[in-house]
Amino acid sequence: MDRRFRLALLEARLARLEGRASARTPRETAEEGLFERASLNEVLPAAYAETPASLGLALAALAGLDRPEDRAARPLLWFAGPGDDFGEPYPPGLARLGFAANRLIRVRVRREGDMLWGLEEALRARAELRVVAALARPLSLTASRRLLLAAEAGGGTAALLLPVHAAGATVAATRWQVRAAPSPDEGVGDACWRVRLLRRRRRGASAQGPAGETETLMEWDHASHRLRLVAALRDRAWAPRRRAG
């Protein structure tokens, strides 16, 4: 693992032991939330083996959009389809990521066409639904535009898990590259991720925010159902490591 991360982790662990917040806490990303409401958000695993962690982050970031009243009942539609290499949603574990069983609806689709149709319908429904789907291949620009229009019309928020190495144009509001990170806890603790913003499109502005400069260490606080920023590391030269991937 990266040396700087080891340092950041140690610092976080120390801060926890001393009962204080982490020393370096740039707030921008964390406070705005990783995802944008009523839009598309894409999550790209840094390697094939990072796919489950990436899906976990996508769910955590969706849960991060929840207002208190959403937590009780705002449904999460999980489109299970050909892109699911790592199995099916398991509600006893999902509850810990902020989605209780009564919020969960699984829609199983056989074909990509059905998945796109279903996503569009779900985003367009005027119920601010949360929608998650693992895509077998990246969306075409046309398809992602359709979905974006539907999300803007209905208020639905989509978290789309891209296949590894997916690249190319998108109209999604955000695209994040994700890999797992060791948790600062002593044992197997709460989930931790290293995330890097690849793209953020502000509503109404064509310019994109700064991307790719910062890799951020996020952790999931299951008590407050919030993503928390542990450390941010600026490093332009950061490159994904190929090991174990």
Binding site: I105, R108, G118, A127
Partner: peptide
């Protein structure tokens, strides 16, 4: 209401893809 919208959506999904494909978890 949003609840009605959701009902409508689930029915539409079921009508197109088969009602057995739209499911909720039960313990």
């Amino acid at each position: 209401s949003a609840a009605e919208e959701i009902t409508v959506l689930l029915d539409r999904l079921g009508a197109r893809m088969g009602f057995e494909t739209v499911t909720r978890p039960q313990g």
